[in-house]
């Protein structure tokens, strides 16, 4: 059974069909890439799967359970969590506090617990786990920095750390290497691969950086005007005539990156 499945999923904004009748199936343990020209509906698809938007029609299943129509926090509780294309963090909090807040679901604190501080031992465990995640991401050294003082690459990495703090099964990354320099990009790519290999987290990835997508994903779904154009391994995708046309001659970009056959 696929971990993530969408059936006839559509999201319309007035007359605009941002996502249209989309069937998608992601197996457990995959690193799946979603590409497409600007406005193809990639981010909208993320917003619908993660619950930020309600779908116009169609359904989303996570691990066989219907999640379409649920709030993002409920979907996060069921193991599906997303990061943002923009840099999203709680900027008045430190790095450690940011990750700690994302443990909210697992901490499940009551009002009485808050007043009497009964969950102190649990809090220790949560902090230990948060530190472990920061260690993995490579931010443990700066755990007490205010998050808005971090350089861009670190802020993006912190976004991933926060998503990990919810202990997801499916991690949806919206342009994880956008605006990063080559070293940061390489580090993030390595990190994503480790998340799948060592932490057994299934990855769904939207990315414009072709080198990253082609190098990281075993399987790629191409969207165009909200429709699924094609699916396949990176090699099939770069030589697919429809994909090249959809990118309107930007096949050169693929060739420049040295991936076209």
């Amino acid at each position: 059974m696929a971990l993530l499945e969408t059936k006839g999923l559509s999201k319309h904004f007035g007359g605009l069909k941002a996502v249209s009748d989309l069937d998608l199936s992601v197996e457990e343990g995959e690193i799946r890439g979603i590409i497409g020209p600007n406005g193809a509906g990639k981010t909208t698809l993320f917003n619908v799967i993660s619950g930020t938007y309600k779908p116009t029609s169609g359904e989303v299943f996570l691990n066989g359970e219907r999640i379409s129509g649920l709030r993002p926090s409920r979907i996060a509780a069921k193991g599906g969590v997303r990061t943002f294309q923009r840099t999203a963090l709680f900027k008045d909090f430190t790095v450690l506090q940011n990750v700690s807040i994302a443990r909210h679901l697992l901490a499940n604190e009551s009002l009485l617990g808050a007043v009497f501080g009964t969950a102190r031992r649990m809090e220790k465990a949560h902090e230990a786990r948060a530190l472990e995640i920061l260690e993995f991401i490579g931010l443990a050294d700066i755990k007490n920095e205010l998050s808005h003082n971090l350089p861009h690459g670190h802020q993006r990495a912190l976004g991933v750390a926060m998503a990990l703090a919810t202990e997801p099964r499916l991690l949806m990354l919206d342009e994880p290497v956008a605006g990063m320099n080559p070293q940061e990009t390489a580090r993030m790519t390595e990190l994503i691969r480790k998340l799948r290999d060592e932490w057994k987290i299934t990855i769904l990835l939207v990315e414009h950086d072709m080198r990253t997508v082609m190098g990281l994903c075993e399987y790629i779904t191409v969207l165009n005007f909200g429709h699924k154009l094609t699916e396949g391994a990176p090699k099939e995708i770069v030589s697919n005539q429809e994909v090249i046309e959809a990118y309107l001659g930007s096949d050169n970009i693929l060739e420049d990156d040295g991936f076209a056959s």
């Binding site: 993660s50 930020t52 709030r71 993002p72 996060a76 969590v81 963090l89 909210h104």
Partner: peptide, 16 residues
């Protein structure tokens, strides 16, 4: 306070 900081992010990391 996280809700005040970024409501959408708060919701997505599991805060109802």
């Amino acid at each position: 306070k996280a809700i005040h900081g970024d409501e959408m992010l708060a919701e997505c990391v599991g805060i109802n």
